[in-house]
Structure formats: C-alpha cells, structure tokens
Amino acid sequence: MLNTVYRLTAPRHFEVEFNEIDLFGEQVVVRPTHLSICNADQRYYQGKRAPEVLAKKLPMALIHEGIGEVVYDPKGEFQPGDAVVMVPNTPTESDDIVSENYLRSSKFRGSGFDGFMQDNVALDRDRIVRLPENIDKTVAAFTEIISVSVHALSRFDSIAHQRRESVGIWGDGNLGFITALLFKAMFPDTKLYVFGVNQDKLDDFSFVDETYLVREIPDDLSIDHAIECVGGDGSQKAIQQIIDFINPEGTISILGVSEYPIPVETRMILEKGLRMFGSSRSGRKDFVKTVELFEKNPEIVDYLSNIVGAVVEVNTIKDMTKAFELDIQKAFGKTIMVWKK
C-alpha cells in the first residue's frame, strides 16, 4: 500500500514523501483524523533545536499527539472506522524494572522517526487504544499529553509519603491545567494549590482549592508535596520557590522540560530531606488509564475542552504551515489539526 508522508525537511518547510505499508503483516493501519501540535513539534518546526540535532533528525514527519480511525486490521480485532488513540512511544524490548518510556532503546514518533503527519500509519496493535463513543475528538487529539500527567501522578502516588494534606502545582499553562485537573480527580481529598504568573489563566483553575500569583504567595503558606509544570527559563524560579515553601521530607515532581541546565539549591534539598524525581512521556498502560478516566469522569473531558484553541482543517501543505504558524501565536490552549488528507 503506497502511503503519503508529510515530512519537515528544514525549519518551516514541509515536503511530500512516500513509503510502503505492508498489508500482509500484523500491524493495524490507522488513518489520522485529529492531530495536536506540541511544543516539541514547534521546536523542530521553528528550528529551535541545535543544528547538529536538526541535521540528525530531519527529514521527519512531526506530531506525536493524535487519534485516528482504523482502516485495516489483518486479525479483525479492530473494525474499520473504530476510533483509536495512537501511542507514540514504540519500545523494542521489555524490562521488569524500567518502564517502556524510559528504556533508552525505545523510539518515539516525531522525535527520531516519523510521527503522525501521514495519510495512514501502520502501528503494532498494542500501540492503539480504543476510544469511548461520542468523545470530543478535539480533546481526544491530545490524549498523549494527558497520559503524561497520568503517568507522572501515578509515580507521585507510589513515591510521595502519605501526608498529603496540601499539594502545590507550579505552572498555569496547558500542562499545569491538565495535571491539576487530573490530580483533583485522582486525589480529591487533598487541598490543591496552583501557582502561576498570569491571573487570567489562573482564573480558569476554578476546580482547585486556591490559586496564587508567584509574586504574591503568603509567607506562612506551606505544602507537603509539589509538582513543577513550568519548564523553560522559568524552571529555576519555580523549583526555588517550591524548595522554599515545601515541608521537610516532601516530594518534588518535575514535569517541565528545559533545553538548558538550571541551577538548583542543593543545600536546602539536603537540609529538608527532600525527594525530587522526573517524569517524561508515557506508555500504553498510561493511555489505557487515561481512557478509563475519560469514561468514568466525563466532566474531565468537558473541562479539557476549555483548552482547545485553534482548530484548523488541513487539506494541503499550506494548511499545515498555517496551523503551525497559528500555534506560535497562541497564548494558551492546544492547536488541533483536523486531518482531511
């Protein structure tokens, strides 16, 4: 089966290329329908990765957040038209200790090999998860980033001590919103505080117990544990504030991605006996748990619809460029491509 792939060959430049999909193997063929643009995609699109990284990675089809419809399943376990979420992490081995998303041998779509900007995608059957009927597909399009928060919170549950009277989340962007929403669903009895830099964004966190601008945190406030969802240049200040306000032996979960090393005050980490751990990406079990949360807590999907930003119908390469350029201009929310290719 001849397939069309839309690869980024240079910053801000997509080109059409072709490959073959084997219909006689065991993989399931999925036609993408809704794709979500991530900050990582933008770093490639804008050429914000190091030149040696771009030279190694490109040409490459972008996008690791997306859903689609089954076109063909040689085993008949999925029927044509079934709506599924596509899992971008692609392990090549298993390990009894290390999760699939941390194995150095695992591949990740849109970061080392082709992502979902294709007419059709051939996936191992454990790389797709069936979606609930009638789900908002513009929300389902970014199930991947939601599953990252689910993964991080599952790790938090296993690592953080059981005194959980109050937890703080630093970050008022998409990741902070998603993580806060899921935290309240998974830990409803814990007081949740969100710290950010934009009052308009904080106003959207109506489901948490309290919000604070980072420059107006009460001196007497304290938290048992913290989750950092800032990333970038703001990571240093966020982590420093967390260290200042967290109680002794608290746990700090790091989710924000920074391109460059940041200094951390190790003295107070030692004095307070703090734990710090990082979480990145997700695996199949996190996607399954995320879909279960969608089914059991439909209000989560309703809240998440608030961060759907631009929705762009894509029929041509010009439309792809339009979607990425619109995404650069956004202040908040997820840009969704309705993939009509």
Rank of each mutant, 00 (worst) to 15 (best):
S154M: 10
R155P: 06
F156A: 03
F156I: 05
D157M: 09
D157K: 15
S158Y: 14
I159W: 12
A160E: 07
A160K: 02
A160Y: 05
H161S: 13
H161F: 08
E165Q: 15
E165M: 09
S166G: 08
S166D: 07
G168R: 03
I169V: 15
G171K: 04
D172I: 04
G176L: 03
G176N: 07
F177L: 05
F177G: 00
F177I: 03
T179E: 01
T179A: 01
T179R: 01
A180G: 10
F183K: 01
A185R: 00
M186K: 08
M186A: 08
M186N: 03
F187Q: 09
F187P: 03
F187R: 07
D189L: 09
T190R: 06
K191E: 14
K191Q: 14
K191D: 13
L192K: 01
Y193A: 00
F195Q: 04
G196I: 04
V197C: 02
V197R: 15
Q199E: 14
D200T: 09
D200C: 00
D200Q: 14
D200Y: 09
D203L: 10
S206M: 06
S206K: 09
V208L: 05
V208F: 03
Y212A: 03
Y212Q: 05
L213V: 08
V214H: 07
P218G: 07
D220S: 10
L221R: 11
L221N: 07
I223G: 03
D224A: 06
H225K: 07
A226C: 09
A226W: 04
E228A: 03
E228H: 11
E228Q: 11
C229L: 05
V230A: 00
V230P: 06
G231I: 08
D233P: 11
D233N: 13
G234W: 12
S235P: 10
S235E: 13
S235R: 11
S235T: 15
I239S: 04
I239W: 06
I239K: 07
I239M: 12
I239Y: 05
Q241N: 15
I242P: 02
I242W: 05
I243P: 04
D244Q: 10
D244I: 06
D244E: 15
